[in-house]
Computed example of a mutant assay.
Amino acid sequence: MLKKTPATTTSRQAVLDRLTGKHVVGPGLPTVAFDQTVQFDDPVAKFIEVLSTVGGQAHVIDDVEQIGQILGEIPVYANAKRVVSLVPEAIAGSLDVATIDDPHALASVDWTIARGEFAVAENGAIWVEGATMPHRVLLFIAQYLAIVVSRSQMVHNLHQGYARIGTPKSPFGVFVSGPSKTADIEQSLVLGAHGCRALQVFLTP
């Protein structure tokens, strides 16, 4: 009976070491001609239009006090038990996330009210900076999501959006445009499969 020879990783490690030690200079990023990118006569109107086509709803408001009034007319908000507000000047939440260390404790959150840095007219997305999120899961675990963003911080397209982000302030940040949806199973559209079931966006001055 032949004796099995133990496998050796010496050759493989030598290859990996050579790859690790080799400095490869990649091609630089392309220069974007911003004057040739898509521009809109009314970017706010375009944002509202695009957000509507993907299932979200936008509200143009003049004062943050209107947020509570509008949300109060939505039954699933009026009946909500656990609301996390990261925009306390607009909405007083019923759950203090500062006292929560384990994100699993947020599994039953009904609403998250988050703050957006800027919005993109081209695709109806809002950039949410991770530094504003005590737990990043709040954007995805809540049944319903509302984002407050200034309409003065509207950009026309994603080229401008990424230029605006530059080097992110924190390791986490995300473009949000909702609600979550999938049609993988029998081509049947399901909302809220991987995130919020509905998205409300409040466009402040």
Rank of each mutant, 00 (worst) to 15 (best):
F202V: 11
G56H: 10
S177M: 03
T37G: 08
A163P: 10
P88F: 02
A58M: 09
L19C: 13
P27K: 14
V190I: 13
A80R: 07
T9V: 15
E65Y: 07
T10A: 10
Q39F: 01
M133C: 10
E89N: 12
R197N: 10
S11M: 07
A98Q: 09
G72S: 11
A90P: 00
V148F: 09
A142V: 00
D63C: 14
D35C: 04
V87Y: 07
L29R: 11
L189E: 04
P75R: 14
M1I: 01
L191W: 08
E186C: 11
A163M: 01
G195E: 05
D62Q: 14
V64G: 03
V24M: 07
Q187A: 09
R12N: 10
T5I: 13
D35L: 01
Q153H: 07
K81M: 13
P134T: 01
M154S: 02
I165T: 00
A58C: 11
A146E: 08
E117N: 05
V128H: 00
I113L: 08
R115H: 06
V15R: 15
L191D: 01
I141L: 09
V149E: 00
G124T: 02
D96S: 09
C196I: 01
P27W: 01
T10S: 14
K3G: 00
G93M: 02
V87W: 06
P134F: 01
A163L: 05
V38P: 04
Q187Y: 06
Q66P: 09
L139S: 05
G192W: 06
T132E: 07
A78Q: 12
R12S: 12
A193H: 12
K4G: 06
I91T: 02
A7Q: 06
A92M: 09
P6R: 12
L95G: 01
G26I: 00
R12K: 14
A146C: 07
V137M: 14
Q200S: 10
A105M: 07
Q160W: 02
V15S: 07
F47D: 04
D17N: 14
F118Q: 02
S180A: 13
P27F: 02
Q36S: 09
D62S: 15
Q13L: 09
G178Q: 11
I91G: 06
A90D: 01
A163D: 09
G192D: 07
S152K: 06
A78E: 06
H104I: 03
V44I: 15
A142D: 12
F118H: 03
P88Q: 11
A125R: 03
D35F: 02
V174R: 07
P171N: 09
T112K: 03
I67V: 15
D101M: 03
G195C: 08
L86K: 01
V76R: 15
